[in-house]
Write a protein that binds this DNA or RNA. Structure first.
Length: 269
DNA sequence: AATCTCTCCAACCGCTTGTGT
DNA sequence: GACACAAGCGGTTGGAGAGAT
């Protein structure tokens, strides 16, 4: 009993023809994205649903930018990679119009080689190195292990009110384990945050993170470090649903990206 | 001109996660 | 809780084109 094949036997493989692209584009334009297996069947494409999805998302979807990755984008990729490791999808979300596949390919074909040639500051692009302003930055670059711990995916998160000492505790309903202590489920959830990366951002004494942001991620730090048995039970606090999905990783990214924006003179973006 | 080697990138593949029943 | 299915993700592969010999 092997794995059930995800695709019919009679499927096309390899490069997509113009006709196939048109067929897929028309179908998605009419019926929308999703249900990719049905897209493949209903549109009359002899393709695997996954293949249709990938073709659409990486190539046909309106707004996809192709080629000519700018210096700014390159810097962004380098810095995001330092922060996130090989989480191409997350990196791609921060680069409008770029796909995870393209960024991954660009990294593998260009940046990884480029950075290999710069062993002393592996995460600083050549453009950055030429800038005096970036000289400081260079000394601060810390290489992230390629096998940096993978953050968990987090859905809706509840958090308790700010405590008197300014510590915010986070509770994730989806991660709460029946029968386990609240502390355990907290710890489980908090693995989501790579503390070394947090510290990497936070201990940057030279960084000019605006005060508000400093407070923001200080709180996140404390979330990760306040998980002591002495802390009061989360059930003691009234929980509030955040207005929107709150993703600690996103918060971290925002902090880092604001730094980047300021760095690149794009503060108003 | 022919052949080989290298580079790039679209596409494939297997695994994980989310969701519905 | 178990299962099935869909979607998402990242590593890898293979073909096309460019450059070298």
């Amino acid at each position: 009993m092997g794995r059930r094949p995800c695709c019919p036997k009679e499927i096309n493989k390899g490069a997509w023809s113009r006709e196939e692209d048109q067929t897929l584009s028309k179908y998605v334009a009419i019926h929308g994205e999703g249900k990719w297996q049905k897209v493949a069947q209903n549109a009359g494409l002899k393709r695997c649903g996954k293949s249709c999805r990938q073709r659409w998302l990486n190539y046909l979807k309106p707004g996809i930018k192709r080629g000519d990755i700018s210096v700014d984008e390159e810097d962004m990729i380098i810095r995001l990679h330092r922060l996130l490791g090989n989480r191409w999808a997350l990196i791609a979300k921060r680069l409008p119009g770029r796909t995870d596949n393209e960024i991954k390919n660009y990294w593998n074909t260009n940046l990884s080689k480029k950075l290999q040639k710069q062993p002393t500051s592996p995460y600083v692009s050549s453009s950055l190195q030429t800038s005096k302003r970036h000289e400081e930055e260079k000394t601060k670059q810390v290489q992230v292990a390629p096998e940096a711990p993978r953050p968990r995916r987090v859905k809706a998160i509840q958090y308790s009110e700010m405590l008197e000492n300014g510590v915010c505790e986070i509770n994730s309903p989806s991660n709460r384990v029946e029968g386990s202590s609240d502390e355990a489920s907290f710890t489980d959830f908090l693995i989501d945050i790579d503390q070394s990366q947090l510290l990497n951002i936070g201990d940057d004494s030279n960084s000019k993170v605006p005060q508000m942001e400093e407070e923001d991620h200080t709180n996140i730090h404390k979330v990760g470090l306040t998980n002591s048995p002495s802390s009061s039970s989360p059930s003691d606090h009234c929980h509030h649903l955040l207005p929107d999905k709150f993703d600690p990783l996103e918060t971290l990214l925002d902090v880092e990206l604001k730094r980047m924006a300021s760095f690149l003179g794009l503060e108003n973006d």
